[in-house]
């Protein structure tokens, strides 16, 4: 039951996101670009940080940055 509710909740969010994308894409292309672009900026920054975790061996204090 819990999984079903979670699934339905996520499906709802997805539906809203699609609706928003269609409306913003049709009437406000720059708004749409902002939504997609900002999400992308956040994800790329996060990816950069995650990459750093793989580059550095944690615990070593003489690491070069």
């Amino acid at each position: 039951m819990k999984t079903l509710i979670k699934f339905l909740g996520l499906a709802g969010v997805l539906f809203l996101a699609l609706l928003l994308a269609v409306v913003a894409g049709d009437y406000g292309p720059w708004y749409f670009a902002w939504l997609v672009g900002t999400t992308m900026i956040i994800l790329i920054a996060a990816a950069g940080a995650v990459l750093m975790e793989t580059q550095t061996s944690s615990g070593r204090r003489d690491e070069e940055f």
Binding site: G37, M40, I41, A45, A46, G48, M52
Partner: peptide, 19 residues
């Protein structure tokens, strides 16, 4: 705070390039 700074710098620089 080198570990802290290196991570903050990395994230900020990536945001900065795209922005």
């Amino acid at each position: 705070h080198r570990e802290f700074a290196a991570r903050s710098f990395r994230m900020a620089a990536l945001v900065g390039v795209i922005a």
